[in-house]
């Protein structure tokens, strides 16, 4: 019968509409209180349509989510080297960055003028950054990580879109907060590496001096 196909399609849309309201009724009054609401209504089982009320509500980002990079520094209240930057200005991130938006000025010792493992200046042009995550992936010191803060709108792109050291630096506790599992894994890997090194040093004390350099 002509029109049957249209009617069938209409039935699907009506079902969607009804499902949405039935779902609303099912969770009536619990939208903001019951933590089961979101996973259920936004997950694979849902039948109706359900929207997140951005910006009043926000979905948290998964740990691996990558937006722009930031530099990890010690916490300001850390027992050793408070606020010390982890970056050694080795330059790997600047070399691997596909659009070449990382600019690093290597630090030099104020007395000797010799390079020191610390950046004097560090810039990322976030207009150019393609959020690829390579810098964080290939940094050998876990010193650069991908931030989850995607709300970077500003009124003046010429003034605010090159992030400098001050803007880029964030304490390691921030990274542990936004990516707890990753941060824990990295910490474990670093500690294992340090233990391995310490064991090697003990077994070959002659080499100690080289390692210290």
């Amino acid at each position: 019968m002509y029109g049957q196909g249209i009617a069938k399609g209409m039935w699907v849309t009506i079902k969607h509409l009804v499902d949405t309201y039935l779902d609303d009724l099912k969770w009536w009054g619990r939208r903001y209180t019951d933590p089961a609401v979101f996973p259920e209504r936004q997950g694979p089982h849902t039948r109706g349509v359900f929207t997140v009320q951005y910006p009043e509500e926000k979905l948290p980002m998964p740990e691996r989510f990558r937006f722009t990079p930031f530099l990890v520094v010690n916490d300001p209240d850390a027992p050793e080297h408070p606020s010390h930057i982890w970056c050694t200005s080795c330059g790997i991130c600047a070399k691997v960055c596909p659009p070449q938006c990382i600019w690093i000025m290597r630090g030099v010792h104020s007395d000797t003028g010799r390079p020191i493992p610390e950046p004097a200046e560090f810039y990322i042009d976030i207009d150019v950054c393609m959020n690829c995550g390579y810098c964080a992936e290939f940094c050998p010191f876990d010193a650069i990580k991908m931030d989850h803060n995607y709300e970077l709108a500003s009124y003046d792109r010429t003034a605010h879109h090159i992030h400098d050291l001050a803007r880029l630096s964030k304490p390691v506790s921030y990274w542990e907060h936004i990516a707890p599992t990753l941060a824990a894994n990295e910490r474990a890997a670093r500690e294992a590496e340090a233990a391995r090194k310490a064991a090697r040093k003990k077994s070959a004390p002659a080499k100690q001096q080289d390692d210290a350099k």
Partner: peptide, 11 residues
């Protein structure tokens, strides 16, 4: 120009 003497300039 990016490292070790990275004098930043806007693209």
């Amino acid at each position: 120009s990016r490292w070790p003497e990275g004098h930043v300039c806007r693209a």
